[in-house]
């Protein structure tokens, strides 16, 4: 199978189960949003997929090849991490050149062109870059590498709005240029909601849902009105959360939209991804 398959992966840290028997797959040719709260298990999953840490049990396959300690997957996967793993004393240009030596598919010219777009000084050492520009540097490497599977862990950390927009447009351009899979792990749900096709929601080490954004937005909705009327309407429905404001109550529901009572006591509204996830994970992000 073409894609990343995660099979029954469990990872424990002493008392904490960071990932609990997680099974999930990422197909080739899609943009995924890997979403979840702090400590939900996103980074643990990413680190296991990219062979930085080991699962206690389970297996990761990339295009059918076991990913653990296997150089055969080296050119298939690249992970841009939130953590800084690069040598801080090397200049940006030196890092680009080393990446070119490590990855045959790294396009140095593209990296230099993107550096110009982002106004990244390639003669600066990594440690001399601001937090935002360190993220930009890592993004440029990931965007200039034509690996089939690229994972972005908190890609826009420290970036201003303009730079974030530029990243999203470059990402889409890259996506259109070939059959690739991008996995974006982020907290900025609303920002990526227009880009991602599928959503994987992780909470407390478990996959809560995996579905297309389209399906989720189609099947999720809010119903507001008088408390009693809302509660009556919700009976037998998959309610993921409530909000109350004075006598008014809003219910967030997953499922096919049912007809509202004709007395006009209730109103239906669309639900955005962020609200959906806040309600599904039980607490505010």
């Amino acid at each position: 199978m073409k894609g990343i398959e995660i099979k029954k992966v469990t990872k424990r840290y002493r008392e904490v189960t960071a990932l609990d028997n997680v099974s999930i797959s990422f197909e080739l040719g899609k943009i995924y949003g890997l979403l979840g709260r702090n400590g939900a298990g996103k980074s643990t999953l990413i680190n296991i997929v990219s062979n930085r840490i080991f699962a206690d049990s389970g297996e990761i396959l990339i295009d059918g090849i076991p990913a653990k300690e296997n150089m055969a997957v080296h050119d298939k996967l690249f992970c841009m991490s939130e953590t800084d793993l690069y040598d801080k004393d090397l200049k940006v240009i030196e890092h680009f050149k080393w990446t070119k030596r490590f990855y045959a598919d790294f396009e140095l010219e593209k990296a230099l062109a993107l550096s110009e777009k982002y106004k990244l000084d390639t003669n600066k050492r990594f440690r001399a870059l601001s937090k935002g520009y360190q993220s930009i540097f890592k993004l440029i490497i990931a965007l200039s590498l034509a690996a089939p599977y690229v994972i972005f862990d908190e890609p826009v950390l420290g970036l201003d709005a303009n730079h974030r927009e530029l990243f999203y447009s470059l990402l889409l351009k890259e996506f259109e240029s070939g059959e690739r899979t991008f996995i974006i792990a982020t907290h900025l749900i609303e920002e990526v909601s227009n880009i991602i096709e599928e959503v994987v929601l992780i909470d407390k080490g478990k996959v809560l849902l995996k579905d297309s954004v389209e399906n989720l937005l189609e099947n999720g909705y809010g119903v507001s009105g008088a408390k009693a009327a809302v509660e009556s309407f919700c009976k037998g429905k998959n309610v993921i959360g409530f909000e109350e404001l004075g006598g008014l109550k809003i219910a967030y529901i997953i499922g096919k939209k049912a007809a509202l009572p004709k007395d006009g006591s209730l109103q239906i509204s669309a639900i955005n991804l962020q609200k959906l996830f806040v309600k599904m994970t039980g607490e505010e992000f």
């Binding site: 062979n51 930085r52 150089m71 080393w98 490590f102």
Partner: peptide, 16 residues
């Protein structure tokens, strides 16, 4: 301390 992290970032296995 330094190279191990850089090599992991660049997809190398521990044997390599």
């Amino acid at each position: 301390k330094e190279d191990f992290k850089a090599f992991l970032q660049n997809g190398f296995t521990r044997r390599y």
